[in-house]
Every structure is written in structure tokens, then in C-alpha cells.
């Protein structure tokens, strides 16, 4: 009886701790339900968009304890794709991303501040072109729940603007193209 009670208490404790512990998610890059897009002005007349096709990451999130949220993303810089072979070749070259020297880019979160239901400000260290800077940007939880295949998923979106010269990319693309917008659209599968 005593032993049973102990097991029950232990069991409850485990259950409780798993409830208060933020759930861990793996970004669904395998099923391609995650996108890292970029957008930059062309000559000041129009927008050019592209994306990174290959990246990986995990996050942990609990809607009851959003401040404990963390995210970690690694991008393969050589996977940049603007749907134009010669341009991609330039972007990968030493005038821009210099992917042979800097094959990966990372984002590691350090803080999450809730600003309302499903909204918050994410802060973290972003490394690009060998330069690491602390950046903060708003993110929104789109939704979460069971998927039709027996898993549990949660999705977010976030957007930030980077100044290229902050990351040591100083090729002159003109006055309208000094900043690039990065858009993060991610869906994670709970592990």
C-alpha cells in the first residue's frame, strides 16, 4: 500500500513536471512546413524575394509559460535560392554571403517576452557572414493542435529587417537596397 502510494506520488510528480515543462518541437523541414524567406528592394523600383531551402532547428514552447520559450535555428547559407542561377552564384560568392568561408548562419534565442495572447518579442543572437549580433523582433503564434497523422504541431511567424553592412556585407546595391527583410514561417512537430 505504501509502495503503491509512493508510485502514485512519483507518477503524479512526473506528470506535473512534464506539464510545467515547455514542450520540445522539431521544425518540420522534412515535410517542408517551414520557410525562411528574404526580401530586398531592387533599385528602389520593386521587390526581389528568395529563400533558404536548407535549414534545421528546434524550439520549445508552452502557451501557459511563453517566457520559457526558446528557439535554435541553423541555416545552410549555400541553400540560398532566388530562382536565378547567376544571381545565386553571386549571392553565395565572397561579395555577399561568402558561403565557403561562412557555410552556416545561426539564430539562438536568449529571451522571449510575451506582449499579449499569441504575441511576443523574441531576442537572440543571430550570426550571419561570421558576424554575431543580438536582435529582437516580434513573433506571432499562428496556432497549434493535433495534426491528422497522430502528431502535435505548433506554428509561428516572425519578421525582422537587417542592415547588410551590420553583417559586413558592403556590396553597393544602391541606396534602396541597404536592408533585407527576413521572414520566418515555422511549424514544429512536438517530440
Amino acid at each position: 500500500m505504501k509502495k503503491q502510494l509512493l508510485t502514485l506520488t512519483l507518477g503524479a510528480a512526473t506528470l506535473l513536471s512534464s506539464l510545467t515543462h515547455a514542450a520540445d518541437y522539431k521544425i518540420d523541414t522534412e515535410g517542408n512546413h517551414a520557410f525562411i524567406n528574404f526580401k530586398i528592394q531592387h533599385l528602389g523600383y520593386s521587390w526581389l524575394t528568395g529563400r533558404f531551402n536548407d535549414f534545421d532547428g528546434t524550439f520549445s514552447y508552452d502557451k501557459d509559460k511563453p517566457e520559457a520559450s526558446t528557439i535554435n535555428v541553423t541555416i545552410n547559407t549555400a541553400s540560398i535560392d532566388s530562382n536565378h542561377a547567376e544571381r545565386d552564384k553571386h549571392l553565395k560568392g565572397d561579395e555577399f554571403l561568402d558561403v565557403s568561408q561562412f557555410p552556416t548562419s545561426h539564430f539562438v534565442s536568449t529571451k522571449y517576452e510575451s506582449t499579449g495572447e499569441d504575441k511576443g518579442i523574441l531576442t537572440g543572437k543571430f550570426t550571419l557572414h561570421g558576424v554575431t549580433k543580438t536582435i529582437s523582433f516580434p513573433i506571432t503564434r499562428i496556432g497549434e493542435g493535433n495534426d491528422p497523422w497522430g502528431g502535435y504541431r505548433a506554428g509561428f511567424e516572425g519578421k525582422t529587417t537587417l542592415k547588410l553592412t551590420d553583417y559586413g556585407i558592403d556590396y553597393n546595391l544602391g541606396p534602396a537596397s541597404t536592408h533585407v527583410e527576413l521572414e520566418l514561417l515555422i511549424e514544429g512537430i512536438r517530440q
Binding site: 535560392d81 530562382n83 536565378h84 542561377a85 547567376e86 545565386d88 552564384k89
Partner: peptide
């Protein structure tokens, strides 16, 4: 192959 690398 350089110029047609993206199928164009």
C-alpha cells in the same frame, strides 16, 4: 550549366 542551373 551555370546559366541553366535553375532550369531557365
Amino acid at each position: 550549366l551555370i546559366s541553366t542551373a535553375k532550369g531557365k
